[in-house]
Design a protein around this nucleic acid. Structure first.
Lengths: 353, 353
DNA sequence: TTGTAGGCGTTATCAT
DNA sequence: ATGATAACGCCTACAA
């Protein structure tokens, strides 16, 4: 029988069966010390060409790859970033995630993905985040004040994406929804729209509420009548239902409908055209927010306020990375402006006299 | 002014400044050994109610959370799963990712996300995967034989999602594209379609090629004329361009167009209707693959072959998890059938005599 | 430039 | 049931 104590490693081959080679194995094979191997993988380390060559050779022969987990343990940097995202079926988020991903790879960081299907689950999710010693967090989810405080307490840099907190200043990259919504209303009012309807986002969506609030405020400012507001859940069916409700509501039907996001706007357009036979934008103007891809499709060519997702993602990653390096100083909020895409679902040009 | 230096740590607090509490800190505070703390967090461990109480108390007071990285180092299980995904802007993938994510959380595993924007980048991406000691990999990307062999060599369980390899049996969850494509053609032929056009997926997409091949084979089998095949890239514009090319091609225009995925089909429908004023499905039938959400929108109600994404994701996760537990035995391929959604962009019913 | 040795935070083994 | 003690694979002074 083989002795119970670990057999003296054979000169060649990675010692323990099934396991992958370690830096120690490589050192053994290259005839150098383990630290020499380690150094070799560190960028600006001092190592003679000769040793380097031997290490490279041995490493290649053994298929050696450094263990990032072990490294993180000692360096206290995991190069892992948590991305919390609500609802990937939301169409807006995949774009965000995709951009974030690209940016992070270019910084040499890996994404630990946490999807939050239901708001209730957020607690559980957040508690999972700590365990993996992520260097930072980007959250595109609703986050409670307590959670944010906890991040701060644990010293984990956090950047909110398209979210802010009323109660507390916090690092965030956002798009000015109110400004956008006001512009939109102004433009619509300038071309004669008078009766506004709004299909709003869910109550717990700050972004959605801002869009609604901004639009409503401007409507009233302009002396137009109180808009009819019906609730939605950011999905296509909400747009369809919203349209029905606005039509069914007593009083004259609106001549302009502002939807909390593009998908609802698309549902709204479809319902208007296919269910009610309305001419959009002839009889009714409809606009959305986000600027997702389907909004550009020929069937819609939606009038919408496009968020500069790419810029925002870039900015968020930059912010997080610089936060990770340095001490946390005062929170910063980067605000981007939405861009009005005129599209063809709203009358925004003066009719020729 | 408040002093700049961090206040001297209280006797209680975790010792080293800025660092989070370790099991050792908890042990100290609870007056037990470090291993007792470790045991406490292990499910079926033997620990007296009294010590347990003290550990819980101390842990809570110190905000202690176990370090998953350190744990993984010794247990050789990271509970990390790599998900390789091509192109999140593809609309089909976010659905997949979303489902995978849900399933993995329920198994207590975390997702390390790797997006592969360009096929060329795959090498770099794959090499990143190893470092983090993931327990397994789900790949919804094109993967070369070498890569797959490398996974095998390193003993990392791999499940391909909607992909297979001709050269080698490999664990995979797929949807039978050929069967689906054949069915679709049969149905179309049964209602009198004779001249087929195909807008195919990109050359390097196995799924796309299968769809095209399956359709073409059945078309020829039925004695119909060789279909006109134009290439596409799975995006909306490809559908639009494809439509144009099919119209421009010499010979009579097709009366049925099969597109490599829904998004191209949508582009194709839009081009047909808005650019060429064609009646779809009256003058021209158009069908796609995948069953993504926009396909259901009122403007389209696309005829399509829906992939059972949820079932497939569920199955893939199950497969991977059981692979992780046990030794790798012979590769398994799980094949699902697509479901034909009749929709309203193709004539699939016999006109009433 | 190179090697030795200690430590990162945890789990596992083995006495007690 | 509990506590030493040895890994796990790596990085990093420090000494040579």
């Amino acid at each position: 029988m083989a002795s119970k104590k670990p057999a003296p490693v054979k000169a060649d081959a990675p010692a323990r069966k099934g396991r992958s080679a370690t830096s120690y194995d490589v050192a053994l094979r290259a005839g150098v010390s383990q630290s020499a191997v380690s150094r070799h993988f560190k960028p600006g380390a001092s190592v003679s060409p000769e040793t380097r060559a031997r290490v490279i050779k041995a490493a290649r022969e053994l298929d050696y790859i450094p263990n990032a987990l072990a490294r993180s343990l000692i360096t206290r940097r995991s190069n892992l970033v948590a991305v919390l995202i609500s609802n990937l079926t939301n169409l807006y988020y995949p774009e965000v995630l995709s951009e974030l991903s690209q940016q992070f790879v270019s910084k040499g960081m890996r994404i630990l993905l946490f999807t939050v299907p239901h708001e209730e689950d957020i607690d559980q999710v957040v508690s999972q985040v700590w365990q993996y010693q992520v260097d930072g967090v980007i959250a595109a989810t609703r986050l409670s004040l307590e959670h944010i405080m906890e991040f701060e307490r644990r010293g984990i840099p956090l950047v909110l994406f398209n979210r802010t907190l009323k109660e507390k200043a916090v690092n965030a990259v956002v798009c000015d929804q109110i400004e956008g919504a006001r512009d939109l209303v102004s433009r619509l009012a300038a071309t004669g729209h008078q009766r506004f309807g709004i299909i709003s986002g869910p109550k717990d969506s700050v972004v959605g509420q801002e869009r609604t609030r901004g639009a409503r405020a401007r409507i009233l400012e302009l002396g137009l009548r109180e808009p009819l507001i019906v609730p939605g859940e950011y999905d296509y069916q909400s747009g369809v239902r919203g349209m029905r409700e606005l039509i069914d509501a007593k009083g004259k039907a609106p001549d302009a409908i502002i939807c909390g996001n593009d998908i609802m706007a698309i549902g709204c357009v479809d319902a208007a055209r296919h269910e009610f036979g309305l001419d959009v934008p002839g009889a009714l103007s409809i606009a959305g927010f986000d600027g997702v891809e389907p909004a550009t499709w020929l069937s819609y060519q939606l009038t919408t306020l496009r968020q500069p997702v790419q810029k925002m993602a870039h900015s968020a990653v930059d912010m997080l990375v610089s936060l990770i390096g340095n001490e946390q100083d005062s929170p910063e909020k980067r605000v981007f402006s939405a861009v009005l895409i005129e599209g063809k679902t709203a009358r925004l040009q003066q009719p020729p006299q």
